[in-house]
Simulated assay, not measured.
Amino acid sequence: MSKPFIADGISQEFDQISVSKSIQTFLSSLDQKGEFRLPQRAYLATRYAIRNLQLPPGQTVLEREMAEMLGMSRTPVREALVRLEMEGWVRLIPRRGFIVAPIAADDLRQIYEVVEALDGIAGNLATERATPEELDQLEHLIEEQEKVLKLGDLMTWTDLDEQFHQKIIDLAQNSRLRGIMDSQSDQIYRARLYTIKFRPKPIRSIMDHKAIVAAMRAGESEAVRMLLQSHRHRSRHEILEVIQSMS
């Protein structure tokens, strides 16, 4: 079994006030979407904080602290934490709180195996269903990636990269596929964000993205599938190499 990865460049402490502000902003976005169920709000907000490394891997958080940051009682928080543990985001500490799950190579490898296959399906469907205007949106994201990469802003680049892949899933217009990918892609995003400063500069990824959109415009769905899967496979190799070298 592989050891969890803790990157030297990421602080293992969290600023409760800062995290609380970020969570409250996220909860406001749920208000706009009409999501008012407390357990669901607690679940989504806690997962959001873990995904974005505001609660870093290995961090211990008291149940009381989490309830304070969420601005709600402990009952919906407990319900949310049970769900998060089932999904592999946290490990519960009875009568205390939880530990944010570390990033382990074995688990990440399995997630990538699923996502690589489903990315190919999404690419096939998106090629058949996307409009020229929607492909323009993908190209705009690539242009933005190039701009921030020149500035050396790897965190923003990672966010734009995620938007690119999520847009392709949106264009597939398949809610079942979306549901499965959502449950896995956030784990991959966390690992990508966590290791971005230790991996090669992502120039190759931008080249891949351009090739993917070009194949989509040409209606070559099989080529899109192969390009997306190859792209994900290379990303998997880079991330796992970092994790294994620093475990």
Rank of each mutant, 00 (worst) to 15 (best):
L70D: 03
A215Y: 02
V61K: 07
G179A: 11
T46V: 11
Q59V: 13
M207F: 05
D186P: 01
L228K: 07
L92G: 08
K201T: 12
M226S: 14
A211Y: 00
L141W: 04
V224S: 07
G152H: 11
E87C: 08
D208I: 06
T156A: 10
E143F: 10
G123C: 04
L27M: 08
L141Q: 12
I93V: 15
I206Q: 05
K3I: 07
E79V: 09
I142F: 12
M72I: 11
H237V: 12
G34T: 05
R109I: 03
G97F: 08
A122H: 11
V114K: 12
H140W: 05
A215S: 14
P102L: 04
A172E: 01
V213F: 04
R51E: 13
Y48D: 10
V19G: 00
P56M: 06
S20V: 04
S175A: 15
V148Q: 06
S11P: 00
T158H: 05
R78A: 08
G120M: 07
G97Q: 10
Q187H: 15
F98Q: 01
L177D: 06
Q173R: 15
R232Y: 10
N124L: 14
G71R: 03
L118W: 08
E35H: 10
K3D: 05
I111G: 01
I239G: 07
V224I: 13
A130V: 08
R192H: 11
D119M: 14
Q40M: 12
E113R: 13
R64K: 14
E134P: 03
P132G: 09
Q187Y: 12
Q166G: 10
S175E: 13
E85G: 01
A223T: 15
F198D: 13
M226V: 09
I121M: 13
A223R: 14
P202R: 03
R217V: 05
F98H: 04
R78F: 00
S221T: 09
R83S: 10
N52V: 03
L135V: 07
I111F: 07
E133P: 01
A126P: 07
L70E: 00
I188E: 01
